[in-house]
Amino acid sequence: MTESTVQVCVLDDVGHINLRGDRHSVDFITAVESVIGQSLPVAANTMSEKEHRVFWIGPDEWLITTVADNTLGLLADLDKKLASHHAAVNDVSGGNIELRLSGKNVRDVLAKGCTLDFHEIVFGPGTCAQSGLAKAAVLFGFVEAPHTFDIIVRRSFSDYLLRWLANAGCEYGIEFR
């Protein structure tokens, strides 16, 4: 029996909010930050983490992940606060599946299916990136040192991706929880 050095957990208590708005607008950023209580990352491939996790996913687009029960409240607060702005707030919780991968060989498994550089000096705290994993488009977020990552994938691809992970991770005794 191989010792498990990669663990995968499907997070089921999460809500996802897609936010679009003008990064050049100080008003917009202030309004958002006053609701979420943390910074809105404006640098590419970065994320902010406090009560929620906020991923930069485009120059005018963010993904906010939070506890499932908070989602509708946060959504309503953002809608209200941004009513006078050109912005778009959408609940996308149903569309995404979020996986948490941990263990010392996570980076090795990811390297089998993704062209991103997962070396620790490149992909560390505060980093997120969108790319492809195997044949699915995904969002990677670095969650915790040394090797814990979140992978957010569209719901319809999640079954495929889990099967791909099971295959790619078998040499590391991959476990699903």
């Binding site: 590419a44 491939n45 485009g58 120059p59 062209t115 991103l116 990136a129 969108q130 790319s131 492809g132």
Partner: peptide, 10 residues
């Protein structure tokens, strides 16, 4: 211009 150097497949 935003995300940096990436493979063509993206």
């Amino acid at each position: 211009p935003w995300c940096g150097e990436r493979a063509e497949t993206e």
